[in-house]
Amino acid sequence: MDRVEILKTYKIYIGGAFPRTESGRYYVPVHGNKQLGNICLSSRKDFRNAVVAARSACGKWSGKSAANRSQVMYRIAEILEGRKSQFVQELQFQGSTKSKAEQEVHASIDRLIYYAGWCDKFSQVFSSVNPVASAHFNFTAPEPMGVISICAPEDSGLLGLVDAVAPVLAGGNTCVALASEGMPLCAITFAEVLNASDVPGGTVNILTGKRTELLEHMASHMDVNGFLYCGSDEEEIRKVQSLAVENLKRVSISTSEKLLSSERQNPYCIEDFVEMKTTWHPIEIISGSGSGY
């Protein structure tokens, strides 16, 4: 007799732990007439808890040195590389062909590596020392924005999520991401990858569920600083933009076009989720030539 396979329970990822949704609800995404599993139908309370976790992780993640963040992100890629086959299987299970699935996994790993490399470089590209007319040293440098809501693309289970999360992380932010509703499996498996790497708990939180339920709360929560919306549903975009006004969340809209293309890779995606801070300090004027004081 064949061995009986152990089936995987997909849970959500909050604060470095894998709880079930507090609501106890589930939904069953399907591909064709195949059921993908019992997936957590996260509630607004799950989202709220995730924001609390993300906020408290802000210091832990942004407080790491940029070089260290870079290594942690590299570590995510390393672990993803080691679990390639699991992701390929899941992608196939969700309807992809083997070669397309492999392509997507490879691109996801490479994207992580790409943004891992930016962690300790982007601020050099976007900073400036400003030659002010007065006797002051003046510089402008990016700082993390804080907690970002991410609505991952619907049509790409893994790469879409990685493409959204990586630049946000590279910028030193923490996030709460809502996985693709129809293809949520890789998102939760990716959470396991994050959990196995050295990402502090709460830095990335991943929920599964329905945009129709959660989008509103993700956009309106007063303790969220930015919103990355991936998709092109005009009504949803409108909703996000209007609700974001309440605390002036920075909203960025990203389509899921050309996800595989290297055109998607650029530090301007990081710049969307940083704040530029300008600092002034006086420069004492006593010169070696004895011009006096």
Binding site: N130, L248, M276, W280
Partner: peptide, 27 residues
Amino acid sequence: GIVWANTYNKFDPTSPFGGYKESGFGR
């Protein structure tokens, strides 16, 4: 968005100005 250390209310054309949070966005 702007932090003045040991000075205050200094402005310069070369120096970006703008806020975090509900003080707005863009520089």
